[in-house]
Every structure is written in C-alpha cells, then in structure tokens.
Nucleic acid binder design. Structure first.
Lengths: 363, 363
DNA sequence: CTGAAAGCGCTTACAG
DNA sequence: CTGAAAGCGCTTACAG
C-alpha cells in the first residue's frame, strides 16, 4: 500500500507552495502558465491522485451530485441514470445513487445523507407529494431538481412528460378509433402525481364522450409492499378488472410495469389482445414492439427529459436565485397492435404510427 | 440558509467535549451510556446533520462504496445496482455510480475517481480483461470485487454466473431436443470474458456432436460505438446470419440486448420463430415470457449474484488479507417457445420448464 | 471514562 | 504573481 501523495509533495518537487499547487491544479487564475505547467508536470511525474474529501471539506461542497430515484430497476429510471451520470462526469462530478423504493422514510434518510455529503445538487424523483425533506435540502442551500413528478408548491424546478396528455390521447384513441365504450384502468397512485395525472387524463377523455364508462382499479395501500409491486401485484390488479361480470373491453395501464402485468393477466384469463380486450399503456421499452401483441403506448422522451433535468440542475448550481421552472415535455403516442390497430401484430416490418401530445412550458 | 452545526455545538449544548460527542455518535466504546444518551439528545434537539467529508478526510476512508458497471441501462446491471444500493445503505454507505459504456478509458478515469473519494470498496464490471487500473485500486488498499466478468490473474474476488454452462446447455438443447444441425451465434466479444465464455459453451456443445455446424457473427470493432450497440447493431448482426445462402436453423444470442435484436432481425426477414429459425439467448427479462414467441433463455440468478458480491465486498473490507475467491453460480435454463418447445407460444398460462447448470465454487 | 489538542489534505483570505 | 498560515469538521492517540 503506497503512501498517498499530497499537495505538499508536489510543492516540494516543483519548488513552490501548496497555494500555487492548489491554484494550478484547480485551474484557478492567479498563477502564470509557466508555474501551472510546472505543477502539472510534477503532479504527473509523482502520480498525484487528489483527495476529494479534503477538497469537499474545505470548499463546503462536494464534487458530486445526488440522484434519488424511486426504482432504479425500472428501465425509465435507469436510462435517466445513464444520462445523468454522463453529464455529471463531464462536470467532474460523481453521482451518488439512492433508491427509495417509493418509501418516504427511505427518501428522508437519503436526502439527509445528501446533505451530509454536501453534494452540489440533487436530482430527485419524489416519493410523496408533500415536500418534506426536500425543503430541508433547500434550506441547506442545495440546488434541487425534480423529475417525473411534481410536489405541492412551486418552489422546485421540475421536468416531466405530459402525463395527462399522453394518457388522454391513448384513451381517446380507444374510444374514437376503436369504438370502446368501457375502459378499465390499472394504476398505482401512491407513487405521486404522475399516476394521478395519468388517471386524470383517462377520466377526462371518458368524460368528454357521453356513453363511455370507466372502471378504475388502483393498488392503493398494497403498493407499500415492495415485493408485491412487480408481476404478481400488477397481474392481480388487472385480473380484478377482467374478473368482473361487466369487464371493460379495453385496459389502460398506468406504466411499463403495469402494462406487462396487464398483458400477463389477459393471458392468464385465456383472452386475446386486442380481440377480447384492447390494451394500451404508459411508457415504452425496447421490447414492447416485440411483445405478443406489440404494445400501443405513450412513450416518454427519456433522453430529452434527462438532458433537460441535468441542464436545469447545473444552471441552478450556477445561479441559485433563479425562479423555479416547470417543464412539461410531450409524450409520443406509438400505435401498435394491442389497441386494435393493424400492422405490427404478426411478423413483418413494424411500422409504428406516432403522434405527439402538445408541448407546454411554464416559465 | 441555516448555519451548519458541528460537534462543537453539540459539545457545548451537552456540556461535554467534541471527543465524547464523536465517540457517542459513532457508537464507539469509551463513553458511558449516560453520556452517550446526553449527546444523542443534544444532537436530536439541535438537529445535527453530520459532515461526511470531514469524517472521510480524518478517517482516510469514506462511508461510501463504488459501483462501476458497463451499462446501467441493461436490466441486469440495474438490478444489481438496486441490490447493491440496498445493502450499502444498511452499512451506512453511499453508492457512487459510474457507467463505463464498455470504455476502458472511462473505466480508468472512474476508478481513479474512486481512489480520490477514498471509497471503502468498489464493485466493478470490468470493461477489459487486463487488470489495468484495477491494480492501482489494490495498491491503494481499496477492496475490490468483480461481477459478471473475470480479469486475467487470480487476484480479485469475482462473482458470476456459469456463462459457459448456461450457453452450452442452451445449445445442447437445440441440438439434442430439437435436432438442429446448424447453429448461428451473435455476440459482442469485446466486452470481456463473459461473452467469450458463452461462445466457448456454444462451441463445445457443437464440437461434442459430430455433424453439427456453427456459424459465428461477432460485433467486433463495431462495439466501441456506443450508439450502435443497441437495436440497430444487434439487429444487423443477426441479419448477417439470416442473409447467408446457408443460414443456420437456430440462433444463440449472447445476451438480453442481442436476443431482442435477433428477434427483430427474424421479423425483419419475415421469418417465423421457431418455425423458420429457432432462437435462444442468454439473460432473462420480465418481458421475455410475453414476447412473440416467448424466449427460451439461460437466466442469471441476479439477486444471488448481487447479494454474494456485496457480501464478498464487505467481508474483504473487514478482512483485507483474505485470499481472492471466485464464485460461479448456476444459470437457469428456462424453456419457452422460441426454441421449438410447446406450451407458452400462444395465450394461456405460461408453464416454464426450468433446469439449472451445475454450481461450482472455487475456494 | 473524559477532554485538550493535533492533524487528515485541501482552499483561500491576507500579506508581500 | 506567490507564499505562509489559518481553518473546514471530524477522529484519535495521549494524558489525566
């Protein structure tokens, strides 16, 4: 185990002070280019590594940002994580990853840890609608940006897809283009505003068309049990819809996990999609156009969401006093076979038909 | 922005020294329970938060571990990340997430960052077979554990699935149970030993059965371009197999992404699975039994891999001088319809048939 | 058991 | 521009 080098070692080697070493290695002004080069040369020669904790302690700010997501196993969030890590690396920042599992208790703990780390900013998918520990972050002066979900009050920068518009467009497609008069929904509302907004989209689509009914099934309290949030729970939810004497003729699934659960439930009930029940869902995944049948979805512009959110975070780091900004990006409707549309159902080239919900930005 | 509390504030409030505060809050021996309680009470009353950078600087070791994966968007690695984060949190450790994108240059940079952070350990999916920067980690005394892939030399704890056995079992199933005499493989070898081992499994399965041929297609150099590693690349690879005048009658896909690409290629070529071409792949995903057709796969025991690797890491943190250990966990063959087996092809309850490759542990 | 004090490796007013 | 020195908030030998 080799001894660790410090600025003192470099200073000695270069015949300078630690102050100059610091200025040179941090690319600060106040050193001649000649001195800076001498320092860099010594650092390179000696194999200097840096000590991020010392720097963080002294500067009262770590070269790191936090990423607090509700479920890193969900492809939507792992994609976000990939983009965020990429951008953070460009800024020289490390990424502290936390997974709440939708638990507000976990969220609270993790946000406190972020404060303890003195991260220079946090990107969070809030697990509750009340700001809670998020306000403490703000008090501590840590720039905070929310993704995917809003929180009560307008004090946070927020980036999300048009949950309402995507859901509404999907359900209107079922009603207008396929003549469905009874829609069922499967959702997990406890996770916050996103599902709530999606459900609102369903409701208003139905309300706008007299004669169309809506039957809602929500995971409710069950959602707290992490283990049951996957297949079994989501399949069970959809089955409750299919087992009704007056089962809906089309199902709206609130997210990617629920879509798979619903599809599984329909199979389980030995019914066919879309012949017996049509199915549409929020979120797309790389495999969804290869499912039997290919799934019609409202897809999120993940890359755009991720780049917008990191941009917003770093802008807030630079200008802490900007007003909070809420950005809503359009969802993209991808019509495939599960809604009853022709085309991609069997083999052959998949020709997706896509349209976008309207983009709205509130400054 | 409230001023930050320190041990000095607590000490003053409790009428004690910062030494006692430190001992009490770090659960160290050397304080009476009465003093400890007094400190905790003051900390609670004042709303003390802690400063992890100061602690890390002084202790020369951060309460954090590093997780360096090749592709956090791959469901396999995001699952690993979920488990690792969960365990780390139990130990009071933060998780520093890095994504290499299979780039050894990135890997080198990120491992250097881990050294700069003084993490107490690192879990890494190595992007190359040469130890490289991993050896520097070792020299720096940072416990390091590898997942999914091995590195030349035996100096690292390693946990992975039985790549060889899983692939071999899959291909033998194609040969013995479905009578295929010409197998094609699509792989991306540059990522290291895992794909190489899987390919070896295919080769030996074929070699063990005279009269059976193998045609290999590998991404090779192309794999460096991150953007093309997804759908387009993987679909293109499989198409090269299908476009041959003597196309194979069955395809082995080297991982989950390649499986989807292969399936897409077969669709593109307007062929049917398994009628025209059978398909088996390494890795399972929650959607794979809902694909058209349901995919026959060698599934990795992800939870077990993740818990084993974190266990190994924390054991090494506790006992730095243990000998390196290599653990190979069995893959689970899940027979579904894409190989030609009956059952789960159309609607109805999916009855997976599963078997395990043998478990082998080298102490 | 308890506390005074040194020190981890940086950064940054301050003086020259 | 350059350097001496203080100090960020902890932990830990050391003395009592």
């Amino acid at each position: 185990v080799a001894k660790r080098l410090t600025y003192a070692d470099i200073a000695r080697h270069a015949g300078l002070s630690t102050a100059s070493v610091s200025r040179a290695l941090s690319n600060q002004p106040g050193v001649t280019e000649e001195v800076a080069e001498r320092v860099r040369a010594s650092a390179r020669t000696l194999g200097y590594r840096g000590n991020r904790a010392a720097r963080a302690l002294r500067r009262q700010r770590a070269d790191a940002i936090g990423l607090v997501v509700s479920d890193i196993e969900n492809p939507f969030f792992s994609s976000i994580a990939r983009f965020v890590e990429e951008q953070a690396a460009k800024h020289g920042d490390a990424v502290l990853l936390c997974n709440t599992g939708e638990s507000r208790e976990q969220e609270r703990r993790q946000l406190h840890m972020m404060m303890g780390e003195n991260v220079s900013g946090v990107i969070v998918v809030p697990s509750l609608e009340e700001p809670g520990a998020l306000l403490e972050l703000q008090e501590a002066g840590i720039p905070t940006v929310l993704v995917d979900r809003r929180v009560n009050g307008d004090e946070f920068d927020t980036v999300m897809v048009d949950h309402y518009g995507g859901a509404r467009a999907l359900v209107e497609h079922l009603i207008l283009d396929h003549g469905h008069a009874h829609i069922g929904t499967v959702t997990v509302i406890t996770s916050g505003t996103s599902s709530r907004e999606r459900l609102r989209g369903c409701r208003e689509a139905v309300a706008a068309h007299p004669g169309v009914r809506l039957t809602e099934i929500d995971a409710g309290e069950l959602a707290d049990d992490r283990r049951r949030r996957t297949t079994e729970l989501t399949e069970g939810l959809a089955l409750r819809l299919l087992d009704r004497p007056d089962a809906p003729t089309a199902i709206f699934a609130g997210n990617n996990v629920l879509s798979l659960g619903a599809l599984r439930a329909v199979r389980h009930a030995r019914l066919g999609v879309p012949e017996d029940v049509a199915l549409v869902g929020f979120d797309d995944e790389p495999s969804f156009d290869l499912l039997a049948p290919p799934l019609t979805v409202a897809a999120q512009p993940i890359a755009q969401i991720a780049s917008t959110v990191t941009e917003l975070l770093y802008r807030r780091v630079a200008e802490p006093d900007r007003g909070a900004q809420s950005i809503v990006l359009p969802a993209e409707i991808r019509l495939r076979a599960s809604c009853g549309c022709p085309g991609a159902h069997s083999a052959g080239r998949t020709a997706d038909h896509t349209t976008s919900t309207e983009e709205r930005t509130q400054p």
